[in-house]
Structure formats: C-alpha cells, structure tokens
Amino acid sequence: DAPDEFRDPLMDTLMTDPVRLPSGTIMDRSIILRHLLNSPTDPFNRQTLTESMLEPVPELKEQIQAWMR
C-alpha cells in the first residue's frame, strides 16, 4: 500500500498530481477539480477555493513517481 502522505485525503487513492490548497491540505488535482465543479470551496474548511489557488507540489509528485517504479 502507498504511504499515507501519497494518498488523497478525500478519496484515499494514490495521488498522481498533488496540489496544495491554501489551507495547507495536499490533494490530487483531479479530485479537487471534480469537487470544485460542484462547490467552489475547500472541502475541509468550506473557504472559497478556485483552481487558480491550487499550488503544485512537484517534490511530492517526484517522490510518488519514484515509489511507483
């Protein structure tokens, strides 16, 4: 099983494109984008959230890719 820090906190699946929300939570980009289609909010604190506020986490993405090899 993947380490917890590699798993999306909402869907508990392996992240492939991790992004940091303004709240500091790291999620998979595809999952948070799907959530934003229904509700333009951070799913953990209900603060306003837009796609432009998502910050890529390239170092975590590299760690996940290395773990998958």
Rank of each mutant, 00 (worst) to 15 (best):
K61Y: 11
P58K: 09
L10H: 04
R7D: 03
L36P: 00
R20C: 07
H35Q: 06
S52C: 10
L14E: 02
E5R: 14
P43D: 02
Q63A: 15
I31W: 08
S52Q: 13
H35K: 04
L14T: 06
E59P: 06
E59N: 09
S39Y: 09
P40F: 09
T48W: 15
P43I: 02
P9H: 06
I26F: 04
F44K: 02
Q65I: 14
R7E: 02
M27K: 02
E5P: 09
D1V: 14
R46A: 14
T16A: 10
Q47A: 12
L36H: 01
P56N: 09
E51Y: 10
R7N: 05
Q47I: 09
M11P: 01
V57C: 13
N38R: 12
T48L: 15
L14M: 09
P3H: 05
M68P: 03
I26N: 02
P9Q: 06
I26G: 01
R29Y: 08
T13L: 08
L14H: 04
P40Y: 09
R7S: 04
Q65E: 15
S30V: 11
P18K: 01
W67A: 03
V19I: 06
L14G: 01
I64E: 01
V19G: 02
Q47R: 10
V19E: 00
D17R: 03
A2T: 12
D4T: 14
P18M: 01
T50F: 11
T25C: 12
E51T: 09
I26D: 01
T50Q: 10
M15N: 02
M27I: 06
S30T: 12
T25G: 06
R46F: 15
W67D: 02
V19Y: 06
E62C: 12
D8T: 03
Q63H: 08
R20P: 01
P58R: 09
D12S: 12
M68F: 11
E51V: 13
M11V: 09
L60F: 06
P22D: 01
Q63E: 10
E62V: 10
E55Q: 13
D12I: 07
F44L: 05
P58E: 10
L33M: 13
R7I: 09
M53T: 03
Q65T: 11
S39N: 11
W67F: 09
F6W: 09
I32S: 00
D4R: 15
L36D: 01
I31S: 12
M68H: 15
S30M: 12
E51R: 08
D17E: 08
R69E: 14
D8L: 04
I32H: 00
P43F: 03
D1S: 14
F44M: 05
L33Q: 08
E59W: 15
T41Y: 13
D8F: 04
N45Q: 06
P40Q: 14
T41M: 09
G24C: 07
M15S: 02
P3Y: 05
E5H: 15
E62D: 11
T41F: 13
D28K: 00
